[in-house]
Amino acid sequence: MRSFSEYNPIVIAVWFLSVTGIAMFCNYPLLMVISLVGAVAFFVMRNGLSHGKTHIFFWVLFLILALANPLVSHNGKTVLFVMNHNPVTLEATLYGLNSAAMIIGVLYWLRSFTQIMTSEKLLYITGALSPKLSLVLSMALRFVPLFGRQSAKINAAQTAMGLYRDDNIIDDIKGKSRVFSVMVTWALENGIITADSMEARGFGTGRRTQMRRFRFAAADIAFLLTELGLLGITCAAVGTKSLSFVFYPSITAKAPDMLGVLGLISYGLMILMPMILELVVNLKWKYLRSAV
């Protein structure tokens, strides 16, 4: 029994894409609320109460985004008050709130996505699209810390050879740029050696295969199918005006029909899927442990 983050990266990516995609391209307020609440719950479930800074940043941004629209856009019939000779309307305010909920919800989703989709998983996905690009990416990824370590080494070597003569800012800046220059030379020359090593091991001689590290298990397929089913229903609801909500010139919303309600429920379920999975896993472990 695996937890959600251990599922096949493609399954994970499709799930994130559908959840954020629906949130981004639909403006139905109830859907936004579901997305935002789901996103925060998902993030908190994974990280507990840490990451306080992230939360503060997102909610401050929420306020700014919510307030920006009524101050800039003056569409809408219901004027709340007039500021600097410009009317501030109820519709624009609600619209701003709705957009802010959407954006912050999506930002929360993406934060979780970035946590779950480690580089190795992303390389697996890009590798399916373009093995060459994926290789360049993976190499660059390896180079970043390598260059960091090399810079530190170069800096140490230069210090110990007495190349920093005085202890002042100008000398420091000179030293830093010298280190950077040496590092770049090293990086380029070393890159050539890496390239040689690749060719020596047959790179570029023909079709490449990829050693799969993530298999498609039955659970992956089941998850994917359920998820696509739910996505289909949601899309149908969003696409066929079953869930329509008009802000301008004045707010008109009709009660969602059968399909609309189904769509909302599907979206909610879709968001709950990994959390349910996590719950089941936890219960199972508990059960197993008590059985031992």
Binding site: S130, P131, K132, L133, L135, V136, L137, M139, A140, L141, F143, V144, L146, F147, V184, A187, L188, G191, I192, T194, A195, D196, M198, E199, F203, G204
Partner: peptide
């Protein structure tokens, strides 16, 4: 396009180096 073209390995690695920088 990039996938189909045969770009030299050395050039590819230099691209990776610049990307990392």
């Amino acid at each position: 396009g990039f996938e189909k073209k045969s770009t030299g390995t050395r050039r590819m690695v230099i691209v990776a180096v610049m990307t990392a920088l």
